[in-house]
Computed example of a mutant assay.
Amino acid sequence: MSDPTVIVVGNEKGGAGKSTLAIHIATGLLHAGRRVAVIDLDLRQRSMAKFFANRAAWMAANEQVLPMPIEPDMGDGKTLAKADEAEQTRIFEAAFAHARASADVILIDTPGGDTLLSRMAHGLADQIVTPMNDSFVDFDLLGHVDPVTLDLIKPSIYSESVWEARKHRAISQGRNATIDWIVVVNRLAVAAARNRQRLEERIEKLSRRVGFRMGPGLRDRVIYRELFPFGLTVADLSNDVRPVSVSLAHVAARQEMRSLMLALGLDSGTLDAPLDAAA
């Protein structure tokens, strides 16, 4: 069996939508028939772990069968967060080894901050997916801009972290080993804004400077949040799985998610099938 593809969802700022993006990518891959292992490194919040626990409970209560990921044992998150670096490294490496032996895609959700485990995960990545909100507050972690002209000055701390991850990969796997870095602007407001245009211009300049590509994000839709308590995403919706009434907004969200998966070079699975909205 060939080595699995490692996808890291990363951004050192909290609230950028990393976990939302991670669970949607995971469920999209699962419905495409991929063997997916998920590792949740947000040791305090554990949103992705909670999502799949909700999914198992919902399936049992509703006598439904949906694809589930492989979840290597990371123990109790809060206990692990308090452990020393040697213990954290040991547990993560064991979980990653389990995932590597069992899956063809490993998806790692990282916390909003610079941690040992996050740095380790970035160094193992084949692909880094960085969500950011439609805001210069989020952009500040990628690049610094002049406070008067808003001209791009230099890359910022997270861009430097990705650079270090790329350097580590080149040293460990050879100079031709690369990390595909995709930045997606998440939680877009539906209406266009002047601020967004300015932001997109700076992102485009920074992408050429530090070497990432742009991908479509997920708009700020209630739909992405309302299915979380069930452990479901729009990829799961079908004639048999409809915990909420399906509307045109769900259809649009499904197409949005399909566009994201295709931009990442991933299978779009059941997202290719039409979804009928309620009359």
Rank of each mutant, 00 (worst) to 15 (best):
M1E: 02
D3G: 05
T5M: 09
V8C: 06
V8H: 09
E12V: 13
L21V: 15
L21I: 15
H24F: 12
I25C: 05
A26Q: 03
L29D: 04
L30I: 07
L30K: 11
H31P: 06
A32K: 06
R35I: 09
A37R: 07
R44D: 15
R46K: 07
R46F: 03
A49K: 12
A56R: 14
A61T: 09
E63K: 11
E63W: 02
V65D: 14
L66A: 05
P67D: 00
I70S: 12
P72L: 04
P72M: 09
D73H: 09
G75I: 04
D76L: 03
G77D: 10
A83F: 00
E87S: 10
E87H: 10
E87C: 06
T89M: 08
T89W: 07
S102C: 08
I106V: 10
L107N: 00
I108K: 00
D109T: 01
G112K: 00
T115I: 02
L116I: 01
M120D: 10
A121M: 01
H122K: 10
M132A: 00
N133G: 15
D134A: 11
S135L: 02
F139I: 08
D140N: 12
V145K: 05
V145L: 07
T149I: 00
T149Y: 03
L150F: 14
D151N: 10
D151K: 13
L152R: 08
W163D: 13
A165E: 02
R166Q: 06
K167Q: 11
K167R: 12
H168L: 11
S172I: 05
G174Y: 09
N176M: 09
A177H: 05
R187N: 04
A191R: 06
A192L: 05
A192D: 14
R202P: 03
R208G: 15
R208P: 03
R209M: 15
V210L: 07
V210G: 08
R213L: 08
G215Q: 13
P216C: 11
L218E: 07
R219V: 11
R219P: 12
D220I: 08
D220E: 15
I223T: 15
Y224R: 12
Y224E: 06
V234S: 02
L237P: 01
S238T: 03
S247N: 00
V251L: 00
A252F: 04
M257L: 15
M261K: 11
A263C: 10
A263E: 07
A263G: 14
L266D: 05
D267N: 13
D267Q: 13
A273S: 13
A273T: 09
L275T: 06
L275C: 03
